[in-house]
């Protein structure tokens, strides 16, 4: 097999595995926006909070799964507090909610810096996904086991969300709420409780993805802005509020970033934003989004 083709296939796999991470991060963001129309600008900070919570749990127990649960649970609790204390008081005021979450993101990031300092932390992958595995058609003939594992995690998150949305009563409420909030309320459903559930779940997914990302890469100050941006771009391209859109958006962004990094490193990050602007100029609501 020619080297150029092996290179290309490896870069594609790099892009797909990065897309898996981006999807998991963005899924909570798009879920919250889809139902509540809330642009949670603190999403990146919640990612970072989950990551650090996972680091603390991992340091204490040495168990990846416990770290994952800790990252999810801590951020669920914080999400509930944010929703009950702030966001539910300004329901329906999209911009004001966005502004409040900007303020929150600044506070959370600064307090995490105070607690954990500027150092870098990492979580070791679970034993099923350590080291590298031999697979054909990639550079060197080996590939990171954990990056392949991330694809499985992303698929599990997608499947889990699909089941919740399509096979449970609360999922039925959520889908109905996305279509018509007022009608759902008129039917006697406690909409504010559905909102709380969705915000807590979306926040928890941010925390969960923090642990997953910290295992694949690492966590240090500044990561919040990075994952907020990646989530924004993924859901803008894919269409806000659409789970399938988040998959497509994550694939486009993950692939373009890695292909760019390999073939045109200087402008690799910029390319991402060109793609986004191009998509929006043609389809303002994103690829799978419904018209605003």
């Amino acid at each position: 097999m020619p080297k150029a083709l092996v290179d290309f296939l490896t870069v594609l796999l790099n892009g797909v595995t990065l897309a898996a991470l981006y999807f998991v991060v963005a899924s909570g963001f798009t879920l919250i926006f889809g139902l509540m129309r809330t642009t949670n600008m603190a999403h990146g900070s919640l990612y970072m909070l989950g990551a650090y919570a996972g680091v603390s749990a991992y340091t204490a127990t040495g168990n990846w799964l416990i770290a994952l649960v800790a990252g999810f649970a801590v951020v669920v609790v914080v999400g509930v507090v944010i929703h009950l204390g702030l966001l539910s008081r300004m329901a329906g005021q999209d911009l004001r909610q966005a502004l409040v979450t900007i303020g929150l993101s600044i506070i959370i990031a600064d307090l995490l810096l105070a607690k954990y300092g500027g150092l870098t932390f990492q979580i070791e992958p679970p034993s099923v996904a350590t080291g590298s595995v031999a697979i054909p058609f990639v550079v060197n003939g080996t590939y990171s086991a954990y990056r392949l594992f991330m694809i499985a995690v992303a698929a599990a998150v997608y499947g889990g969300l699909w089941l919740v949305l399509n096979r449970t009563r609360i999922g039925w409420y959520i889908r109905a709420g996305i279509d018509d909030r007022d009608m759902l309320s008129a039917l006697g459903v406690n909409v504010s409780r559905v909102f709380l559930f969705v915000f807590a779940l979306g926040a928890g997914l941010a925390g969960l993805s923090g642990v997953i990302g910290t295992t694949a890469l690492s966590i240090s100050p500044g990561e919040d802005g990075r994952y907020l941006l990646s989530s924004l771009v993924v859901v803008i391209v894919g269409g806000m509020g659409s789970l399938g859109g988040a998959v497509i958006g994550a694939l486009i962004i993950g692939l373009s970033e890695q292909i760019g990094l390999f073939y045109a490193p200087t402008y690799s990050i910029f390319i991402t934003f060109v793609i986004m602007a191009a998509v929006l100029a043609v389809r303002p609501q994103g690829l799978l989004g419904r018209p605003a």
């Binding site: 290179d7 490896t10 870069v11 790099n14 550079v139 060197n140 890469l217 890695q258 490193p265």
Partner: peptide, 20 residues
């Protein structure tokens, strides 16, 4: 020489680009 843009965190394709 691989000059990696500031803000890059996923180096996997930089790794793939290194001569074996």
């Amino acid at each position: 020489k691989n000059w990696v843009p500031l803000g890059t965190k996923d180096y996997s394709s930089v790794v793939s680009n290194l001569p074996t």
